[in-house]
Amino acid sequence: MNLQNISPDEVIYFHLGPFPISATIVYTWGVMLLLVLFSCMVTRNLATGNRIPRWQNLLEIIVQVMRDQIREISHQDPGIYLAFIGTLFIFIAVSNMLSVVPGFIPPTASLSTTAGLAVCVFVAVFIYGIIQQGILGYFRQYLKPTPFMLPFNVIGEFSRTLALAVRLFGNMMSGAKIAAILLAVIPLIFPVIMQALGLLTGLIQAYIFAILAMVYIASATRTHHEKAMELENKEQAKKGEVHG
């Protein structure tokens, strides 16, 4: 077992100019193509009447569940988060689940992919935090509860991003590798169970990744939100006293 077997990044299919196009990128394109085509086909004829096509129904259920989850975690309108969190979940889930297809190497089994996604989350936390609280408001968070906590806050920010990337990569890579190892040891029947378990793990990992991203974003945006809520509560309490 060498590095090439662990990471699909090392499998170079061809070079596009100076850039080596690895298996990870190719399979990512494949997943992207699949998702976009499927979405296009389904959403081309959307029905708003009583009867809706079953594929539209499926997509509506998925989107609705994601919106509900986002709303539950962030206590905010899911509008601006849906595209980011939803795409994370769908991309990871579809990539992981396609791992049961023979010959398909899930892009999420590459640490580069998971690192890329983690970087996206890291940046998104900044962007959403700044959108919601303003630049000063966002960066003031790192000084809480005291300015002495600043280094730890910064370390936490980076470490959790790293954890995101490594968690997903580890799980997916291990799933694929364990399947390969078990095939060598017990070639019949047992690998099927492992594949099924792999599907479950893949879905759970997608869920965990998306939920954690949302939690990070929510924690960056919620302070402002909570302050507003606290102010509101105080005002209400005052009113209550006055009325009392």
Binding site: S7, E10, F91, S110
Partner: peptide
């Protein structure tokens, strides 16, 4: 384990996918 070109490519891929979706 981390191929930085692939990381950037994946980030771009992800952003494209996000916009398309």
């Amino acid at each position: 384990l981390i191929n930085w070109f692939t990381v950037i490519a994946q980030i771009i891929n992800f952003l494209i996918l996000m916009v398309l979706l």
